[in-house]
Structure formats: structure tokens, C-alpha cells
Amino acid sequence: MELKVITADDAYTHLALIGKLDILGVGEVENKFIGYTAARKKSAVVDLSGITFMGSMGLRIFLSAAKALNLEKKKLILLNPQPLVNEVLEASGIGDVVMITSDTDAAVAAAKA
């Protein structure tokens, strides 16, 4: 499991997660992910196109980060999940409170807004 930092400037954070976001995968990136989202207190775009599997622990770190950012009036935006990962996101209802999009420009614009 890998977390890549694409952008981390004063306006927003843009990350990409790559690999299997199962229980062990979450354990490998969780601290770094919290550091670049909740702890950084900037709106964050998280590119999920490289995620091949996500279970409920993955949902948990996204919701946790989104809640923490919301307290700072910032957003977490999930970008471009593969169809099977998107199916889990939809079934969880997380899309009702967290923006999920396949449009990179829209995601970045929302993060900078």
C-alpha cells in the first residue's frame, strides 16, 4: 500500500492511494494519511484510481478524515474510484456526506473553494 503526495501547498492537498486498502493496507498508510488530511487542516483530494480493493477499514479512515476536516470547514474529496470500490462507497452511504467524483478539475476546484 502506497500513499503518494501530488500537491501539498497552502491551498489544498492532493494525494493518491495505490494498492489494497484492506486491514493491513490501512495499517501501512493510516498515520501518513491522517498527517496529510486531518492534521494538515487543508481540504484534500484523494485519488482512488490505484485502489484495487477497499473494505470497511478504508471507509473508516475516509470518514474519520472527512469529519476532522469538516470541523475546520474543510473538505475531503474522493476522486476516481474504480467501479468495484465505488460500489462499496455507494453501499456505505458515505457519498451522501463526502464528495465522490471522477472529474479531477471539479475535485480540485471544490478543494480550493
Binding site: 473494505g55 470497511s56 471507509l59 473508516r60 470518514l63 474519520s64 469529519k67 452511504g93 456526506v97 463526502v98
Partner: peptide
């Protein structure tokens, strides 16, 4: 809402 949503229990 994010304020009211619980983190666990979705699995």
C-alpha cells in the same frame, strides 16, 4: 451530515 455520522458500523 458529517457532524452526525458515526465512523464505524458500516461494514
Amino acid at each position: 451530515s458529517l457532524e452526525k455520522s458515526k465512523i464505524g458500523g458500516r461494514g
